[in-house]
């Protein structure tokens, strides 16, 4: 994997002893992990194990009760954090795409560069054309989201995120709503990004994909990082829980 040039040392994303509850339900129970620049981290685990919540905490879509989260130098756990600065550095792609239905694909992509970064419209259009080409949708500029397949919508959502040139990208079960064929086309795009050196954290149920693309795996269970290591831990799990989890899927 190519190492992008960067002056900042240390991890891009770091969670230290993060705790969070929804009411009486403890969803994150002392979660810690780090992601280095250019690294691809896959978070796996059962539904309800806290993996999506952990991911959402990184972009401050959820607040935490204790612990510390640092992302690209921003102290996410600080309540006074300017959110815009964080979100300029972090891109996130959701399971339900969340494209804006009333805007064309091009308008979807140009919205944030123009309104948030103050780019000129012509320049933003140029960027839109480039990122759409990157995800293989160069001919869909003027389409509305509802005219696209699920796989195309998800690739457009990835393009929308890329247009903001984030330092790190988060993927929250981005293929869970797609059939195997459409899943494949989305995963190929993510794999290209990984090959290009993008720092990524992805919550996924695609074990084969995680094994192939991820530099490191975090297996979550009952709100804890139960087991972590290189992709080879999927072949030789140390804990019974991970053994059962990978065994059940195959």
């Amino acid at each position: 994997m190519s190492q992008p040039t960067s002056s900042s040392a240390g991890p891009v994303v770091a969670l230290r002893d993060v705790h969070k509850s929804f009411g009486s339900l403890k969803v994150l129970d002392g979660v810690s992990f780090e992601v280095a620049r250019g690294e691809v981290l896959a978070i796996i685990g059962r539904s309800g194990s806290g993996k999506s919540t952990a991911l959402r905490c990184i972009d401050r879509l959820e607040t935490i009760e204790s612990g510390e989260i640092t992302v690209c130098g921003h102290r996410v756990s600080d309540p006074k954090l300017p959110l815009r600065a964080l979100r300029l550095d972090v891109g996130i792609v959701f399971q339900s795409y969340n494209l804006f239905p009333h805007l064309t694909i091009e308008e979807n992509i140009c919205l944030a560069p123009v309104t948030v970064k103050g780019r000129r419209r012509a320049e933003a259009r140029e960027t839109a054309r480039r990122v759409l080409g990157q995800v293989g949708l160069g001919d869909k500029l003027d389409s509305y989201p509802e005219q696209l397949s699920g796989g195309q919508q998800q690739r457009a959502a990835i393009a929308r995120s890329l247009a903001m040139e984030p330092q790190v990208m988060l993927f929250d079960e981005v293929t869970s709503a797609l059939d195997p064929e459409l899943t494949g086309e989305v995963l190929r795009v993510i794999e290209q990004l990984a090959a290009g050196g993008m720092t990524m954290v992805m919550v996924t149920h695609e074990m084969g994909f995680a094994r192939r693309v991820a530099d490191r795996i975090v297996f979550m269970h009952r709100g804890k990082v139960w087991e972590t290591g290189p992709a080879t831990i999927l072949e030789a799990p140390e804990t019974a829980e991970l053994r059962q989890f990978v065994g059940s899927g195959l």
């Binding site: 972009d59 879509l61 959110l83 815009r84 979100r87 300029l88 972090v90 891109g91 996130i92 959701f94 339900s96 969340n98 494209l99 804006f100 239905p101 009333h102 919205l111 944030a112 309104t115 948030v116 970064k117 959502a157 929308r160 995120s161 903001m164």
Partner: peptide, 26 residues
């Protein structure tokens, strides 16, 4: 849907911009 608002926020839009660009017309 809440996801629309979250998508807007995560792109860096302020609350006012989310209302204006993301929520108002739909």
């Amino acid at each position: 849907p809440r996801g629309q608002l979250e998508a807007g926020e995560c792109l860096g839009l302020s609350q006012r911009q989310v209302y204006w660009h993301v929520l108002l017309l739909p």
